[in-house]
Design a protein around this nucleic acid. Structure first.
Lengths: 246, 246
DNA sequence: CCTTCCCAACTTGTATACAAGTTAAAAGTT
DNA sequence: AACTTTTAACTTGTATACAAGTTGGGAAGG
């Protein structure tokens, strides 16, 4: 392991999730949930390796109870796998799961982006426009600095910013869950192919299509943008076989 | 409350969920999760009413620990709402949540049904065909007997049977979660409008379109089939205001 | 040396004890 | 009578204790 979980969500990019009821106090288990999830999705926890409730409890100086709650949530997302009386395993990257979640993400993002293009109003969404342009700038800086993790977070933020136009919070939540199974692969892809510049171009084109209200173009660009992962997968699997399942 | 949870899943219609890791022993918390969920979704637990961990623990003769785990999962689905130090509330029906989950369900089912129509092979899916025909027959019997709860379960099973053709288990899981927020409304709709015969007709036509591999027709029929709920909502809200939020 | 068996050291699952916060009714005050 | 304060009975949140199952290494036997 070798990492403290003291300051979760320190990166300064707003998180969509908040699986707490939204109301009242931030419970310990929710902080732990986010911290562990982030470590899994960013590949800081090695797929296939084990974690143990006692170990985490000691490290965080709290009891097992809140840790167990966080683990159960991650199990329900299939990012963790509890082996009774043996420990808890970081899920390996599953080709099946990747293709299943990619399909879902594509269906939902296509629907949301189309709706966003349809709803786009230059006056009403002036602030949104500013936010997105700023995100693209920050992302460009991340490219220059070669910061993959930050790049990915801003990538996510870009997609959410556009989908937020639809006002469908549940859709964002579902896409967020699906992304949990895709981002690990994207981490590897960025390390392997260094194609961040191309992604940037696609984002700019996508945003332009939304701004112009061109629903068909938006859908086409997004389909291509999301489809890339399929072509990359075989090479990644060959390069990092130990992370994969089956 | 006034209901025992001794024999969960007694209805004989296979459940899709299994939020346990799939492996090994069925944990207590998973049985409780399913039992409570089913009670919420079938409106046996009144929206807006409270439940208490102690009460459930006493009733089921177990400790609070597994009950808490089940509750946390249902909170993450937004079917329950924990008010710290006050109790746990059965979520009311939220018009916003209904429209959000309906959009997601529509996007995903449309994609899955289209793919099913594309993949359909009379030889390869002979057994699936039998299963679906049998489901339709049992559903017709449920109509005759006026059993709304059973009708709804078979309705669900029909949709899943077709989507299973795609082999996308995660998609089924997501649709299952979305349905949690829609089924309560459908319960009310069936009580109010008694239009089960019409639903049956739509199912038969849908299946025929899939069998013929007619992707466009399938999509059109499904869109109409799922769209009904929107038209019904205002009247239902007027008839059962106490179940609704906002 | 190899195989078998047993057991101690781990794990998670469950129950229970305690901490902390909310609430509403009773008691006290004006 | 009306208002304020207190308090006891609840709730969930967290920590801890115990139960039950898995595992790997060493003792015992061949």
């Amino acid at each position: 392991m070798g990492r403290r979980y003291n300051s979760p969500n320190e990166e300064g990019v707003a998180s969509i999730t908040d699986r707490s009821s939204g109301l009242g106090v931030q419970r310990k288990s929710n902080q732990i949930y986010e911290a562990i999830r982030e470590d899994i999705v960013a590949l800081r926890l090695v797929p296939g390796s084990m974690i143990y409730e006692n170990e985490l409890a000691e490290e965080l100086r709290i009891s097992r109870t809140p840790i167990r709650e966080a683990i159960r949530l991650l199990v329900s997302e299939q990012l963790l796998e509890v082996l009774p009386q043996r420990g808890t395993r970081i899920a390996q990257i599953s080709e099946r799961k990747v293709s299943e979640t990619r399909f879902i993400r594509e269906q939902l993002e296509l629907g949301a982006f189309r709706m966003a293009a349809r709803l786009w109003d230059p006056v009403k969404h002036a602030r949104v426009r500013e936010t997105i342009i700023q995100l693209l700038q920050r992302q460009q800086e991340a490219v220059r600095a070669g910061e993959i993790a930050l790049f990915l977070q801003l990538d996510e933020a870009f997609h959410y910013a556009i989908m937020e136009i639809t006002g469908n919070a549940t859709l964002l939540q579902v896409v967020y869950e699906m992304r949990g199974h895709l981002n690990r692969l994207r981490c590897l892809a960025l390390q392997q192919f260094h194609h961040m510049d191309q992604v940037m171009e696609e984002h700019r084109a996508l945003f332009a299509a939304v701004e112009q209200g061109d629903e068909a173009l938006t859908a086409e660009l997004l389909g291509r943008h999301l489809g890339k992962l399929d072509a990359e997968l075989p090479e990644l699997r060959a390069a990092y076989p130990q992370y994969f399942q089956e």
